[in-house]
Amino acid sequence: MSVLSLENATLRYTGVDGGHPPVLASVDLSIDQDEFVVVIGRSGSGKTSLLNLAAGFVKPSSGRVRLDGAPVTGPGAERAVVFQDDALYPWLTALDNVAFPLRLRGFSRADRLVRARTLLDQVGLSDAAERHVWELSGGMRQRVGIARALASSPKFLLMDEPLGALDALTRSRMQGFLLDVWQANGVGALLITHSIEEALLLATRIIVLAPKPGRITSEIFTTFGRDHLAGTPLSEIRSSPAFRRLQDELTALIHAEEEGIAA
């Protein structure tokens, strides 16, 4: 089983003003391949920077990012990224978008289309294969984006607010979908979100980030996602007293941090 880890990672954007606190300060986080880690925190707490470090889009100013002990030097197919604004290629059909990572690896057209169709099936979009990106709804686009990320056979799926742009109904349906994908594909998940409810529903572990400098302040283990995969409907989980209580606690925790900064 693979492990993706940030070790004492600090990220500081140099240039304009050296006096700014680092975006992330001494972050230690280790994610196993069977985990669903959700990072939550208010704006400016460095959530996206943390994901960019894990993805290899940026290098830490100090500290390390490692995958199975080997230093991460840049982006790589074993850490596929899903973007908030789907980032699908409008010049490709849904199917060709999903096949894209396989094309990069030199699979023949026939091979990659077979694999891409299987993945589109898995995300429930077999009928949309030949459609253009602009003909798909926001929820469908994100499912194509996730299928495309899975096509690169990643060990980890890094998701930057993938449901942030969706309407509430689609969003709650997609939350169940993300859990299914996570379970079915044996990938480790790192998901960034603003929504406390979403964090509680999906995570096996919630990481709370506080801003200035961005740092981890709490870590909470939850089982609601696994309960759902075991058969409990999401609606029932959302209305259960245990869920409500944890939601209140987490909200209070994040608010307390804000007041701590204001004081």
Partner: peptide, 23 residues
């Protein structure tokens, strides 16, 4: 995002140019 997506799927600089930048 388009460029980063390709990089995260393991695209080389030349592949990014050909499959993302040119289109």
């Amino acid at each position: 995002d388009h460029v980063n997506a390709a990089r995260s799927f393991g695209a080389s600089r030349l592949q990014v140019l050909r499959h993302v930048i040119v289109p």
